[in-house]
């Protein structure tokens, strides 16, 4: 019998490469502009912050009799945010960890960490999707409602935030003497799905990140800017299926000014990895490891005027 590679046993044909392949990880964008707040332990589970409303202007001069003017009423708004607990875990039999050459528990820790961070991000996304006021894109030409995003829609939401005294997230990126670049104005931050990339690239006036005069102060998740809005994309950006007038998917593009929303973490409940070796959890024969993670988080909109959901089709 001749010997060829076809007759080699599979153990000889195959090598296990210990260098693991990468696992896809989502961009984390929805906490980028959130104000972080720490809730101290032993002080309840609802974080309340308050804001005093503006007082009126008083342009009428006092009369000659110097009578006191009418008083103004000072108004306070409270915003409550409840912190919830989130946890997950995996179970590995000891048989796996003592027979497998691959350090499975190490991979488990990495995957748990990824899952935790993506969950934190998704919670904020869902909060914005649920509670933020909405503006439909209407400047596009695809015949749907909303239309695909256009530069006039970007300017509209910019105007709304300006009218509402929203503060910019980032400062101007000044023009420079470099070919093909364009300055970016003081900007609000927009968080949106990667499915919007073709819409953005087709939008008149959109400046891709590599066309910025200076990219030293950008994030890898940033894809570009248009007039006074800079765009940050994620695979887990918000999409509402079939919600347009014609039944197409809608991208919820959250445009935020400074201090528009917040994330609350419990001081004693920050992100945590929990490993329990065999023998715990009613495991008298020491057969199973568990690896888990947990975190305490609340998220809320702190000023409804400073966050807008600019809804677009075309994705």
């Amino acid at each position: 019998m001749s010997v060829s590679i076809a007759t080699l046993p599979p153990q000889i044909q195959q090598r296990y490469n210990a260098k693991l392949l990468s696992t896809p990880e989502h961009n984390l964008i929805h906490q980028l502009f959130a104000t972080p707040v720490e809730l101290p332990d032993n002080q309840g589970f609802i974080d309340r912050q308050s804001r005093y409303d503006r007082l009126d202007l008083f342009e009428v001069p006092l009369d000659d009799a110097q009578n006191n003017p009418p008083p103004q009423q000072l108004n306070r708004v409270d915003v409550d945010c409840r912190v919830r607990v989130y946890a997950t875990y995996i179970v590995l039999t000891r048989q796996v960890t003592i027979t497998n050459e691959d350090p499975v528990l190490n991979s488990a820790a990495a995957r748990l960490g990824q899952s935790l961070r993506e969950t934190q991000d998704a919670l904020q996304r869902d909060n914005l999707e649920s509670s933020a006021s909405i503006i439909n894109c209407v400047g596009g030409t695809n015949g749907d409602i909303p239309t695909e995003m256009s530069i006039s829609d970007v300017d509209d939401v910019f105007t709304v935030l300006q009218n509402n005294s929203g503060e910019y997230i980032t400062n101007i990126v000044e023009a420079d003497l470099k070919f093909g670049t364009s300055p970016i104005g003081d900007a609000y931050g927009c968080m949106l799905t990667t499915r919007m990339i073709p819409v953005l690239y087709n939008m008149s006036g959109f400046v891709k990140k590599f066309q910025y005069p200076n990219i030293s102060q950008t994030l890898s998740t940033e894809i570009g800017g248009a007039n006074n809005v800079r765009f940050f994309v994620s695979e887990q950006g918000s999409v509402t299926p079939n919600a347009s007038l014609l039944g197409n998917d809608i991208a919820n593009c959250f445009v935020a000014a400074k201090e528009a929303y917040k994330v609350v973490w419990q001081a004693g409940g920050k992100a945590r990895f929990i490993y329990l070796p065999p023998g715990y959890n009613n495991d008298p024969c020491m057969l199973r490891h568990t690896a888990g993670c947990s975190f305490y988080q609340g998220q809320c909109i702190t000023n409804d005027l400073w966050i807008q959901n600019l809804r677009s089709t075309g994705i």
Partner: peptide
């Protein structure tokens, strides 16, 4: 509406 409008919304503003 079909020519381009946003819906009317009511949203939370505080406690």
């Amino acid at each position: 509406f079909a020519s381009g409008h946003s819906p009317a919304t009511c949203f939370p503003a505080g406690s």
